[in-house]
């Protein structure tokens, strides 16, 4: 028997997730989690996504057979809601900063850049004067830590029911602008739905996909092998 037991190889997504959590931990964030099988209230209603509104279709949702009101979460934004509800109930007052890496699901055709299951990393920072420039600062810091100092960040206008202003952000990496994800200032309706005074507190949220970061970091041509249980994928 080999005494110098060789260490196993970690999945590249775990490498990315752990490093992301480390960077945010150093910035003062705490990890939060929530269920993958969610209810519509946490996945949509509390996030200011109106019923019977086209916005609800921006994300192709997996509904659950025989369980009205249940979905596979389409984003980690539901963790925001769960965290803030608990936080407000406990009687504590902001500031708070959470980071929630987690598996999400969308009912869409798979290709080299889309999978039905994928990871997002949700970030949420609420305080008295947390602003959009802080969001830019935090995201820029994060991507520099993950991909190197030679990256730059830009914002473009976007729309999410749960943020206002909403932005889409791109990253310049190795000379090319790449779409990375969505973010924005948390919509006052979302704070109020969780019992947080939106007149007094404000802050940002973001939720980029982690597969995207992984393929950019390692130059992967396709995200699908990530879920094939294939050890050839563990090269890092």
């Amino acid at each position: 028997m080999d005494k110098n037991l060789e260490k196993g190889r970690e999945h590249p997504l775990s490498v990315i997730i752990n490093n992301a959590v480390k960077v945010f931990t150093e910035l003062g964030f705490s990890v939060a989690v929530g269920p993958e099988l969610e209810d519509i209230f946490h996945n949509f209603d509390a996030l200011n996504v109106p019923k019977d509104h086209p916005a609800r279709e921006m994300q192709d949702t997996f509904y659950i057979k025989g369980e009205d009101g249940k979905v596979l979460r389409t984003h980690t934004s539901s963790v925001q809601i769960r965290f803030m509800e608990e936080f407000a109930k406990s009687g504590k007052k902001p500031p708070f900063a959470i980071i929630a890496p987690g598996k999400c699901f969308r009912n869409e055709a798979t290709d080299a850049t889309h999978e039905m299951q994928f990871y997002q990393i949700e970030g949420l920072l609420i305080g008295e004067d947390i602003n959009l420039a802080n969001l830019k600062g935090v995201l820029s810091h994060f991507y520099k830590k993950m991909l190197g100092e030679d990256t730059s960040l830009r914002f473009r206008p976007s729309f999410f029911p749960f943020t206002e202003p909403s932005i889409e952000f791109d990253l310049k990496y190795k000379g090319r602008w790449l779409e990375m994800g969505g973010a924005g200032m948390v919509h006052p309706n979302v704070l109020e739905a969780c019992g947080i005074d939106s007149k007094k507190y404000q802050g940002f949220a973001f939720g980029p996909g982690l597969e995207r970061l992984m393929v950019i970091k390692y130059g992967m041509p396709d995200i699908r092998p990530a879920y094939h249980g294939d050890l050839r994928f563990n090269q890092i």
Binding site: F29, V31, L132, V138, R156
Partner: peptide
């Protein structure tokens, strides 16, 4: 949006380890 500076927030939040993630 290019008029926004990149500012790291100066706020201090309570940090707590998450049981499941840990």
């Amino acid at each position: 949006y290019d008029r926004l500076e990149e500012k790291l927030p100066e706020v201090k939040c309570e940090q707590k380890a998450n049981d499941l993630f840990t």
